[in-house]
């Protein structure tokens, strides 16, 4: 079966004022891809995602989603996209049930069935007991679970996840990783941003490393290993972003911590 192209970026360049954030990015993403989207802080990762979601505009080049140029699309393409943002803000004076009902409503789902679906998903995550509690009383892991559910309620074709495992306990992490693998097997596309290289290494079937506004590497983990002669994604990351003095920096840091006040 020929895998369909889902997202294509053509010569995408983005500036904030005079600052160049992304420069001439070309990228094609196919169904079933789990892309580990990595790069140092401020490399332009979330900007890319925000552009694809229509949060940031004013870029050069073209972005195609589901074969259509974003510039000619209205908001409806977002019905097929799920999004877990980084440090997600929730309307946390709402209860979990109200929040999920609201998000489901925004995606145009029918209220009754969405409610049942949300409840069943919460049961699977073992947070259904907190269905009617305010989100503000939720722990970080529970909030993360609510966010993950809210991004999947409408069964999207493309998922953008930014540190989706943060705050989850080890068992829940296993579940989510398995969920992602199975979704990808069903042909869903997953954009996975994270700073935790071990997880990216294990979850993704393709890795895109962005550094200084450019794509510094693109391929499967094995391909990257071969190209860079390194054993782990962490090492590849360090070598491609040109970073090697972590030991020295740590030594200096600890020395400063231990200084006696003058």
């Amino acid at each position: 079966m020929e895998r369909q192209e889902v997202i294509r970026l053509e010569h995408v360049t983005k500036r904030f004022g005079d600052k160049l954030v992304l420069e001439d990015i070309d990228l094609s993403v196919y169904e079933g891809d789990i892309i580990g989207y990595i790069g140092p802080n401020g490399a332009g990762k979330s900007t890319t995602v925000k552009m694809m979601l229509g949060l940031v505009d004013g870029y050069e080049g073209n972005i195609f989603i589901f074969g259509e140029n974003l510039k000619n699309q209205d908001h409806t393409y977002k019905r097929r996209i799920g999004y877990v943002p980084e440090n997600a803000e929730l309307y946390d004076s709402l209860t979990a049930q109200e929040y999920l009902a609201f998000i489901a409503g925004l995606y145009g789902l029918e209220e009754g069935s969405a409610r049942v679906k949300a409840h069943r998903l919460m049961m699977k995550f073992e947070i259904d007991h907190a269905m009617h509690a305010r989100l503000s009383s939720f722990s970080k892991g529970m909030r993360q679970k609510v966010l993950i559910i809210s991004s999947l309620l409408h069964n999207p074709n493309v998922l953008f996840l930014d540190e989706p495992l943060s705050g989850l306990d080890a068992n829940s992490m296993l579940i989510v990783r398995e969920i992602l693998a199975q979704l990808s097997a069903q042909g869903k596309t997953i954009f996975y941003s994270s700073h935790i290289m071990d997880i990216v290494e294990k979850i993704s079937n393709r890795i895109v490393l962005i550094s200084g506004g450019h794509i510094a590497a693109d391929g499967t983990f094995d391909e990257l290993k071969e190209q860079n002669q390194k054993g782990s994604l962490q090492d590849i990351f360090n070598s491609l972003t040109g970073f090697s003095q972590h030991k020295e920096i740590a030594e200096d840091f600890v020395a400063i911590v231990q200084e006696e006040p003058a």
């Binding site: 229509g54 209205d74 977002k78 943002p85 925004l106 145009g108």
Partner: peptide, 13 residues
């Protein structure tokens, strides 16, 4: 805040 929250969903501006 609303913009970040809702613009990512299929709702028009």
């Amino acid at each position: 805040r609303d913009r970040n929250m809702m613009m990512t969903k299929p709702v028009d501006q």
